[in-house]
């Protein structure tokens, strides 16, 4: 391996290297004391940054507690209560309320509802140099003329990733979830054939919603779980915002 740069060492710390690069770099670190020293210095700095942030956060909590912004509470202690009396009534009431809430949740949670709740409209950036038919597509998209977007995209013989994506998004806007699924899958297939995939993470998130909307809960949940497991995914936070309980309810209800 040629001279190791600090940027490479930082990438190693940040877990941004491929497995092969990582192994090669770790072997250099193990054998070259000068590189190892630089690596340890950078690691120590990162640890210091994290500790300083924690220190400030702890100090803030201490200030908040002493100024009364946070409720102070003594450690929990066991409380002795009469075993019978109102306990049974409360338990029955709880069961009734819980049962009603559960029934409501089962009835009210639908894939289309979740897809609608977590759908975020996609604003198109202004780009120059697009092909003529794509410009028309973009113009229609910007004008929120979803039907025209669908129609123009349908007529395009050689669709770009952006065209597939915009077509899928127009389908989502029109709640035509089956069509959205087809367009996002086509985009993913196209991405597999090209060197620089585009709209890949966007397509994953919206495809998950489209699956839910189309009543294909199992596939939607599987895709959402994948995004939730990947902290670096562009839509990680959005996927985390989807209620686990609602997903569980959809899972129980099964695919349509």
């Amino acid at each position: 391996m040629s001279a190791i740069t600090n940027e490479q060492l930082i990438d190693l710390i940040d877990n941004n290297l491929s497995a092969a690069d990582r192994t090669a770099l770790e072997s250099v670190i193990a054998s070259d004391s000068a590189v190892r020293e630089r690596y340890e210095d950078l690691q120590f700095s990162v640890a210091l940054v994290r500790e300083e942030a924690v220190r400030e956060q702890v100090a803030q909590v201490r200030r908040d507690l002493s100024s009364g912004k946070l409720v102070t509470m003594k450690p929990r202690q066991a409380v002795v209560r009469p075993l019978f009396g109102n306990v049974l009534k409360i338990a029955v009431l709880f069961l009734v309320v819980f049962g009603a809430a559960l029934t409501y949740k089962l009835v009210s949670t639908t894939g289309a509802g979740l897809a609608g709740d977590h759908f975020i409209a996609y604003d198109l950036n202004t780009a120059r140099g697009a092909a003529a038919d794509e410009s028309a597509l973009e113009t229609a998209y910007r004008n929120k003329d979803w039907k025209t977007v669908q129609s123009l995209a349908g007529k395009m013989t050689d669709k770009t990733a952006k065209a597939w994506f915009l077509a899928g998004m127009a389908d989502m806007e029109l709640h035509d979830y089956n069509a959205a699924v087809a367009n996002f899958i086509s985009l993913q297939e196209q991405n597999q054939r090209i060197k620089e995939p585009a709209f890949q993470e966007e397509a994953e998130y919206y495809l998950a919603l489209a699956y839910l909307g189309a009543g294909k809960s199992a596939k939607g949940i599987e895709l959402l779980e994948k995004i939730r497991a990947d902290k670096n995914h562009l839509f990680h936070e959005k996927a985390m915002a989807v209620s686990s309980t609602s997903l569980k309810v959809l899972e129980i209800k099964g695919d349509k």
Binding site: N6, E7, I10, D41, L42, F44, S45, V46, L48, V49
Partner: peptide, 13 residues
């Protein structure tokens, strides 16, 4: 970020 971490590391050293 690269530059900042290197600058901070230099300060620490």
């Amino acid at each position: 970020k690269y530059k900042c971490l290197q600058a901070f590391t230099a300060m620490v050293k």
